[in-house]
Design a protein around this nucleic acid. Sequence first.
DNA 1: TATATTTATTATCAAAAGATAATTTTTCAA
DNA 2: TTGAAAAATTATCTTTTGATAATAAATATA
Lengths: 192, 192
Amino acid sequence: MDELIINYISKYISLSDEEIRIVREQNLIRQYKKNEVLLAEGELATECYFILSGCVRAYYLIDGEERNTAFYIENQTITPISYQTHSFSEYYLSCLEDCIIAVGSDERNKELVEKIPKLSSLILQMNGELLMQKTVELDDFKNYNPEQRYLKLLEKNTDLANRVPLYHLASYLGITQVSLSRIRKRISLQHR
Amino acid sequence: MDELIINYISKYISLSDEEIRIVREQNLIRQYKKNEVLLAEGELATECYFILSGCVRAYYLIDGEERNTAFYIENQTITPISYQTHSFSEYYLSCLEDCIIAVGSDERNKELVEKIPKLSSLILQMNGELLMQKTVELDDFKNYNPEQRYLKLLEKNTDLANRVPLYHLASYLGITQVSLSRIRKRISLQHR
DNA sequence: TATATTTATTATCAAAAGATAATTTTTCAA
DNA sequence: TTGAAAAATTATCTTTTGATAATAAATATA
């Protein structure tokens, strides 16, 4: 199971057998059921996550409505803002599917980086990449209207679009489920 | 002038006198006139920036329209995506005001980090912070409608709201200048 | 398989945004 | 200071989205 983590890390830096052993023995792997909550609004996050299988969504509760802002799938890391800032979380993290997740904590991560210093260069690279991704995501969100955003999502994130119920996607696209339904109809009418 | 850079760095890590000297002699400071273009669509970025004074905007050209996606002011760094990925830029960087900017390049940055290794921990921290900011920015953009976004901008970025022409702000908020004008009117009518 | 629950679509009406053009206000330079 | 250019507002009309409720389709479960 933790092969996946090793594979992931190896994409960025090369690990010796000894280092692989260290990563293996460090890693705490947990299973979560669908709809289990990893983090709730108002809590202090003490953990970060690397998804081995399954899907997690982040959502805010606004006027009693859930507003999804991110979906995380296999091979993606979740570092809650609350984890980084030690402030109370403003959003929830909840499993959309049964999940298997590698869970990190401050102490364990520190220990790991001490034992394998070059991991910090991995983190540097990953953060840089994540920052770029977020930037592009935000730019796209501003530059395109809901219909264009939905088409882009279908194109670039086909997997996600199929795994996640439409009403969750709608909120992720910044619109209501009803509006997304209309958009889908409009598109299907245009393409015939 | 490069006091500003030293001050900024010192907020994250402490520098010895010798290290301050190194930063000083490394740094290349340039002046730009209003409307000068730092980076154009289709170009390969070879530089990154730290703004000492002035204001820079990032914009995409979409169907002949300029769509602003970011504004950068004093004490902010600009690391073009093109600079990180070595791919052609999809957006422009252009000065909204006369600017004084510290310019970094791959070679010079590498040299600097070699001479002052702890700078890499600064970059790590900065990237982490920038990632969080972007995440929150994107979340807010999704969670709020144009009027709410404008009000939030006024509240949290008063300085920017006053420095930047409304029609630039509009595109940054993801709406047209006409729509922003209507929003402003609506707000002013409500508050009396 | 039947039934309850969840998910997706449709209909109606109101509110907001886009497109376009005209006009007013502000800014800046000759 | 005045005249041109830039920026902001207003008006009109169309399109899209939001809110709400009803209905239909799909999925899960007893």
